[in-house]
Amino acid sequence: MLFRVLICIILSLMQNVCAKEPITPIPLTMDLNPDKVALGQLLFEDKRLSHDNTIACVSCHDLAKGGTDQLSHSIGINDTEGDINAPTVFNSGFNFRQFWNGRAATLEEQVHGPIHHPKEMGSHWIEVINKLKKDQAYLKKFKALYPQGIQIQNIKEAIALYERSLFTPNARFDQYLRGNHKAISSDEKKGYTLFKQYGCIACHQGMNIGGNLYQVFGVLNNYFEQRGNITQADLGRFTVTGKEYDRYRFKVPSLRNVEITAPYFHDGSAKTLKEAVDIMAFHQLGRTIPEHEKQLIVIFLKTLTGTYQGVLLK
């Protein structure tokens, strides 16, 4: 017992000593089966995954638009407007759960959601598999990689693997974390300091700068009362657990590439980073941030934009 206490104390001190910055850089490389990733990409871009062959995953997660559709709410089949803002697919593999309300534990599990959602792809596994099986090229590719051929499990795995390959290392801020002190300007460093001082870091931390815990939207000042017009999507995790505690509780989103993934929040209500910082400061931290400091935080956030396949995202 005593030993355990002693070990606890020492371990905690060590942790303190070793992990100095609360944010850690994204690994530069990842070991994924390239054939499966290629297959995943085909599926990700294939409109046959939707009921009327109009929508692919890539429709709302466009790599040229920061892995999102840059809309407040996404547009699904039959031009239906969805209920929620599409989160970026970039770095989604590093999130601890998927969806704004965290209802899927893994990317594999996540694939199921949009395919079946009536306002998104409005399809069904049986329909999807039937369509894919008519394509000789798919039959061949699946057979080569999966002995059982085209199956739900394998489609999920291939897409998830492709999504895992969509990570964005080497942001200027990551270069700074790796020891290149010239990678960011002194103003940007100031912004980072303010980011920590104001307490943004309390939730936006770790490798993905978020994406590893749930938090209520409106910790200190109620957001939804002020915005009004509360929808099902606003309830957050409540819709998953049914617990009052989880009302308005969301997965804290990653801030990586945040510069290019506007509009912000699950409802896409903030159009600019400045607006988003304002809302966060008031509702989550109960504070107002002076104009020039806000400016510094925003320019810090812009250093988080990473590269995909060696090219800086735009």
Binding site: C8, L11, S12, Q205, N212, L213
Partner: peptide, 26 residues
């Protein structure tokens, strides 16, 4: 649980390790 205690004492400055442990547990 150790990681939880560290976080309570503000000795862990992010939740990545905790999230990873859960994944390993699963």
């Amino acid at each position: 649980i150790n990681q939880v205690l560290h976080s309570r004492l503000a000795l862990n400055n992010n939740y990545d390790a905790m999230a990873d442990t859960w994944i390993t547990l699963e």
